[in-house]
Simulated scan of single mutants.
Amino acid sequence: MTASDSRASQPSGSSSYVTFSLADETYAIDVLQVQEVLKLTEITPVPGVPDYILGIINLRGDVVTVIDARRRLSLPVREPDESSRIVIIDVDNQNIGILVDSVAEVVQIPAESIDPAPAVGNDQTSRFILGVSSSNEGLTILVDLNKLLSDEEWASLREL
Rank of each mutant, 00 (worst) to 15 (best):
I67P: 00
S135P: 07
L73P: 02
S134Y: 14
G97Q: 02
I141Y: 11
T65Y: 04
E137N: 14
D68I: 06
D90Q: 15
G131T: 12
A117F: 00
I114A: 07
V106L: 13
Q108L: 02
E137F: 14
D101Y: 02
A117T: 08
D123C: 09
A111D: 13
A104H: 06
E82T: 07
G131H: 07
E79G: 04
E137Q: 10
V64P: 08
L75E: 06
S133V: 03
G138I: 10
P116I: 12
D115V: 07
A111T: 14
R70D: 10
V77D: 09
S102K: 04
L130N: 12
I129F: 15
S133M: 05
P110D: 11
I86R: 02
G131P: 08
N95W: 10
P80E: 06
A104I: 03
V77S: 06
R78L: 15
Q124K: 11
R70G: 07
N93T: 11
L99R: 00
L139N: 11
V106T: 07
A111R: 02
I67R: 01
S84M: 08
R70A: 10
P118R: 08
V106D: 00
S102Y: 09
L130W: 01
T125K: 06
A119G: 14
N122P: 09
D92H: 15
L130A: 14
S74N: 05
G121H: 13
I98D: 00
A69Y: 01
D115W: 13
Q94W: 03
P116W: 00
E82Y: 10
S135T: 06
L130P: 02
V103K: 08
G138H: 05
V66C: 03
P110V: 01
S83F: 09
E79A: 05
D90E: 15
V66R: 01
V87Y: 02
I67H: 02
P80C: 02
I129N: 12
P76H: 08
D101H: 06
R78H: 00
D115Y: 12
A119T: 13
F128R: 01
S83A: 10
V64R: 12
Q108D: 06
I109W: 02
A104Q: 05
E79I: 04
L73H: 01
A119V: 10
R127M: 13
D92G: 10
V107M: 00
S133I: 06
A111M: 07
D90M: 09
S134D: 11
S135G: 14
D123V: 13
N95A: 15
P76E: 08
D90W: 06
E137D: 15
G138P: 12
A119N: 10
V64E: 06
E137A: 15
A111Y: 09
D115C: 13
G121E: 10
E112I: 14
P116E: 03
T125N: 09
P76A: 04
N93Y: 12
V120S: 11
S113D: 12
V132F: 00
F128P: 01
S126T: 11
R78Q: 08
S126M: 09
I96L: 15
G97T: 04
T140K: 08
